[in-house]
Design a protein around this nucleic acid. Structure first.
Lengths: 189, 189
DNA sequence: TAATTTGTGTACCGATCAGTATTTAAACTA
DNA sequence: TAGTTTAAATACTGATCGGTACACAAATTA
């Protein structure tokens, strides 16, 4: 098995699903836009849902890598890194390919809670929350769980609104509120 | 024109779109589940998109009415009403028909920024933010815009996460952070 | 009662959907 | 070089999609 072909399919499908939606992207569209034959696709994935799942797993990897790397680049201390979350978000929102959170979109289209698509999406969010929680603990928050939940919800709200309102504004607003939450969790004696 | 039939179609379509998704709900499904003939539907709406738009407008009305009413019932002062937002959300999340925000789902499926569906969704969110902002002003926040934006983002994050994680937890967490933001905006001299 | 509007049932349209069969060719492996 | 795996092109399947045509029934209006 040559893994490169499979990877090529997943990478290209991910991009097309992201900008077009899942139901709205037909397998024929994928064939037309990628130049890869349908036979090859069904050789590597037994169904469209399987391909979607693979794309979501790739996205999960990509996002985690980018998120944690960028936060560490934008902030030097755990505390500044907590705030840097929102600088990283702003950069993301500013990209013209930005089109919201892939997992929110996936779970919006596949509403069955038992669907693996829904499961992957919630797992993804849980692990992002976990990343933030580790940062909050390292920063010495008096209630790391409370702080990380607050920052996480601000982040999620900002992502949704950046998509809907089509701008980077929500990142700035989220950062302002994040500053308040961080100050309360770290400054108070 | 008898308006009752049109209303019946919109009300029933709203519910079905909400629990099944937009692309995933075929017009034939609507016919089967409502018992209303397809001819009648296309008599009142010139396309599926038109019906979706009507359903979203109804949802906007319904949500606003419920939201503002429930906040006023759950809180006596502007300040307690700001906090009551999250009690209202918790009630919403606890309903077993709850399946996330209809407008987030709509804009997740119809990704074209120029689509009227996208427009209705962003208008809806803007007016919710406006409702919160009015409350923040009445409460005497030193920076009402900042406070209302923060609470709004917490609310949006909580809605998304309640859907993904399938629980009411996010409302409680959002409320805890909201308390911090409200205290900072109202208590500090 | 006569005319008009509105809803229904049914059958249909061309397009498109996810997925498959078949054949042929190219590329890797032995 | 022979054999095996993988990709490709093409054409197809049955189901379903959004939307329409048509004939008929019920209710409203005049």
């Amino acid at each position: 098995m040559r893994p490169s072909k499979r990877d090529e399919i997943v990478h290209k499908a991910l991009q097309i699903f992201y900008e077009n939606g899942f139901h709205a992207t037909a397998m024929d569209t994928l064939v037309a836009k990628t130049g890869i034959s349908k036979t090859s696709m069904y050789n590597h994935f037994k169904s469209k849902e399987d391909l979607i799942i693979a794309a979501l797993r790739l996205r999960d990897e990509q996002f985690h890598e980018w998120f944690n790397k960028r936060i560490k680049e934008l902030g030097t201390t755990p505390r500044s890194q907590l705030l840097a979350i929102f600088d990283a978000l702003k950069e993301w929102f500013a990209q013209n390919e930005f089109s919201g959170c892939m997992f929110i979109k996936a779970s919006s289209e596949y509403l069955d809670f038992n669907s693996p698509i829904h499961e992957i999406s919630s797992d993804h969010k849980r692990s992002i929350l976990n990343d933030i929680n580790l940062l909050a603990e390292k920063a010495g928050a008096k209630d790391a769980k409370k702080l990380s939940c607050g920052l996480f919800l601000l982040m999620e709200g900002a992502i949704s609104m950046a998509h809907l309102m089509h701008g980077t504004h929500s990142a700035t607003e989220a950062k302002a509120s994040a500053r308040v939450l961080i100050a309360e969790a770290l400054d108070d004696k």
